[in-house]
Design a protein around this nucleic acid. Structure first.
Length: 133
RNA sequence: AAAAAAUGAGACUUCAUCGCUCCCAUACGGGAGAGGAAAGUCCGGACAACGCAGGGCACCGUACUUCUCGAAAGGAAGGCAUGUUUUACAUGACAGAUAGUGCUACAGAAAUUUAGACCGCCGAUGGCGCCUCACCGAGGCAAACAGGUAAGGUUGAAAAGGUGAGGUAAGAGCUCACCAGCGGCGAAGCGAUUCGUCGGCUCUGGUAAACCUUGCGGGUUGCAAGAUCGCAUAGACUGACAUCUGAGGGUUGCCCGCCCAAGUCAGUGGGUUGAUUGCAUAGAUAAAUGAUGAAGCGCUUCGGCGAACAGAAUCCGGCUUACCAUUUUUUUUUACAA
RNA sequence: UCCCCGAUGGUGUAAUGGUAACACACCGGUUUUUGGUGCCGUUAUUCCAGGUUCGAGUCCUGGUCGGGGAA
């Protein structure tokens, strides 16, 4: 496991396992900060990282691949720049976490909306973690 | 000058910081990184597997000519047809309806192996009736009985060439002239085709984006093809057929042919379903190509915006569809000036 | 990525190239004291745009939307 958090986001920090993702959708905790919903679960991961993240956008709301690609890139960028605090907390607690971000609105967002929603979600995930301890 | 249409170009640029994917490097570090359509998947090709040689049928595609491209339903030039603002553009699945079969509703008298007589026209010829001529017989009149007739009317998308003249009892390509279509011959052209001439019109409605016929072309399946490694494994039971005069299999939509052949097929019930490669001078596999700031440039309703269509998944060529600002060329219309 | 299908009233389905039919639902009328039942009626640019044909839901071409399959 990498010793400290940083603002890089390599492939090893992407959630790719079908089993883990199904487990997250079935039993993970759920938090809302419109227009994003997050589901997450503390579980052992295949790679030695603090967290693995997946972002999704429904094809039903955004028909064109260009729009879906842009929203997913904005969400990844917002996560990359704000994840350090949560990562450090997880490393301190020696836990691994699988996280899925779901974009549920049907209108194109700008970067400020995505960044603020992501910040709100990360702050919400921190207290619940500390409360369990 | 404006508007509209068609057509071609164009598809923001540079720098810095933080990141992402791949490659090179021991390391520091360095390099590459979405489109004109990446789209639709409509054509064609590369590549791959299958067939053990080969042949036939079925099926599918295609259809004016010449040239061109590795090939194609692509491109260029030309011919013909249709349309229009009619002589210049646009469009065209432009082989065959005289090989055969089918369909052609309703309406209409009649809708296709020279059809069809409802109204109409005629009734020369034959017959019935009446009248006149003093006979045999001849002539006339009326009706429309037999019958003739496709000129005219009616229906329909379509009624069996069109117009005119002759002809006839009335009519009819029955005859003639011109036109249209068909066929033969000659000339021009590589050719599609065009022009001229002759012939008969007894055989000629439409539909082939109906079956079909003719010519030409196509083996089938697609990177989830395929290859390698790994993991698992299984025998059993039931039924059928057969053991060289041979079941079954290779074998594909089918058949012939060819090859293998002692066990095979079907069902019940079980096991496995990971990775690498294929794969690229962008290149992954829950799928990278982004965010922020500055300057320039463009637009602006002076707030600002970076645009429209749109995001590589084996690759290449073409087609089709979508498309903002700016701009090239052409055409048309309107206005103004000379 | 590759290969295939489909689209008909509000819903579910029909329809040899020849008047778009049936059932349920909705709405209106009628019968009934009222409601139900029954009876009568209304409701479709056959997904869109072109083409072939005398005539297209059907045949052909292009597009839009929806659905399915693959080792």
């Amino acid at each position: 496991m990498s010793s400290t958090g940083s603002s890089s986001f390599p492939r090893s920090q992407r959630l790719k396992s079908k089993k883990v993702s199904e487990l997250v959708f079935a039993t993970g905790l759920k938090l809302k900060a419109p227009p994003i919903i997050v589901r997450y679960l503390d579980t052992p991961l295949s790679e030695p990282v603090a967290a693995q993240v997946m972002v999704t956008v429904s094809k039903r709301n955004f028909k064109r691949a260009v729009d879906r690609n842009r929203i997913k890139r904005l969400m990844r960028e917002a996560w990359r720049l704000q994840k350090v605090e949560l990562e450090n907390q997880l490393i301190a607690d020696e836990k691994q976490r699988a996280i899925v971000f779901i974009f549920v609105a049907s209108e194109m967002p700008n970067y400020e909306i995505v960044r603020d929603a992501m910040a709100s979600l990360i702050q919400k995930m921190l207290p619940t973690k500390t409360a369990q301890d």
